[in-house]
Simulated scan of single mutants.
Amino acid sequence: MTSPFPQQFPTTRLRRLRQNGWIRSLTSENVLTPSDLIWSMVVHDGDEARIPVGSMPDLYRLNVSEAVKAARKASSLNIPAIAIFPHINPSRKDETGREALNPDGLIPDVIKAMKDAAPDVGIICDVALDPYTSHGHDGLIDSEGYVLNDETSEMLVQQAIVQAEAGADVVAPSDMMDGRIGAIRKALEAAGHTNTMILSYAAKYASGFYGPYRDAIGSATALKGDKKTYQQNPANSDEALREVAMDIAEGADMVMVKPGLPYLDIVRRVSETFAIPTIAFQVSGEYAQIKAASARGWIDGDRVMMETLLSFKRAGAAGIITYFAEYAGELLND
């Protein structure tokens, strides 16, 4: 096979372009900036300002007042958006997750407070029932424990409308029910929320990297069984393209690949195939791995953090949801 790059040594010395700071900067193919980051944030409905998450060092559940401070900080760091996830009091959970539809609940309160404090920061809201259900699944279940698709979608539509009414800029269905994007888009249009965007968790895999997140939102001990009947098989790549194609056809404005680093091939395939804003989610397990190895001195935590974030850009991601956003934003601003 003839090489498309016929350069030969010593006529070509690629190390010439790596010798010092200015030339490395000039020839960088990808650049990471604060505007590439989406701050992944867990909020709670208690009075305590900050509650540490044991499995995620240096991460805290924030109450409404602290979330407001974080929104202002995101604005100062030029971080364009925050993705919020709820930890609610177990007394408000039930089999159906009805608290997700409460217009005076935690998430609507947080949305309103953050938008008042930092109107220039986009608010992205998770649309799913797992933080609200006593069984920890993303939807309604039947007597056999199977998650019901159409009945769940009906609730997700109502949840998305509640979030849009509260002022969310983006609703982000993470449940992986078939057809829910089209149903949500139709409902948003009918309710006059024509500018509310949909970020679809279009390629969300049944991954082992979500454990610390479930600890953070309080669903880890509640989860009965697994989520393999609705989240994607990690063995599949073509299936992700089918999922993305369907969600775009139904009205998604952006699509997501989750988890991030183990699925960079999916990020690349999706971004190249569809030319639609593709978001990578650097999930809780990825965060915890880096923090744990760094704490033991096995890796340079800051360097690895920035390297992984840059890898998402290199793979074609338009943005990265990450628990590192605040700290990475500080380093990038410095």
Score class of each variant (00 low, 15 high):
residue 5 F to T: 12
residue 6 P to L: 12
residue 8 Q to S: 12
residue 11 T to N: 07
residue 21 G to I: 13
residue 22 W to R: 14
residue 28 S to I: 02
residue 28 S to M: 03
residue 33 T to W: 00
residue 38 I to W: 09
residue 41 M to L: 15
residue 41 M to F: 04
residue 50 R to N: 13
residue 54 G to Q: 15
residue 55 S to G: 14
residue 55 S to L: 15
residue 62 L to T: 06
residue 62 L to M: 10
residue 65 S to R: 15
residue 73 K to F: 10
residue 75 S to C: 07
residue 81 A to E: 05
residue 89 N to C: 13
residue 89 N to S: 13
residue 91 S to A: 14
residue 100 A to L: 08
residue 101 L to G: 04
residue 102 N to A: 14
residue 107 I to C: 08
residue 111 I to N: 02
residue 119 P to L: 14
residue 120 D to H: 08
residue 129 L to P: 04
residue 135 H to G: 08
residue 135 H to Y: 07
residue 139 G to A: 10
residue 139 G to H: 03
residue 141 I to Y: 07
residue 143 S to F: 01
residue 147 V to G: 07
residue 149 N to M: 09
residue 156 L to A: 02
residue 166 A to Q: 10
residue 167 G to N: 12
residue 174 S to A: 13
residue 180 R to P: 04
residue 180 R to G: 02
residue 187 A to N: 05
residue 190 A to N: 03
residue 192 G to T: 05
residue 192 G to A: 05
residue 197 M to H: 09
residue 201 Y to W: 09
residue 215 D to K: 12
residue 230 Y to G: 05
residue 231 Q to P: 01
residue 233 N to M: 05
residue 245 A to D: 06
residue 250 E to S: 12
residue 258 K to V: 12
residue 264 L to G: 03
residue 272 E to N: 14
residue 273 T to K: 14
residue 277 P to Y: 06
residue 279 I to Q: 04
residue 280 A to S: 15
residue 291 K to A: 02
residue 291 K to P: 03
residue 292 A to R: 06
residue 301 G to E: 07
residue 307 E to C: 00
residue 312 F to W: 07
residue 317 A to E: 12
residue 319 G to K: 09
residue 322 T to Y: 05
residue 324 F to P: 02
residue 334 D to G: 12
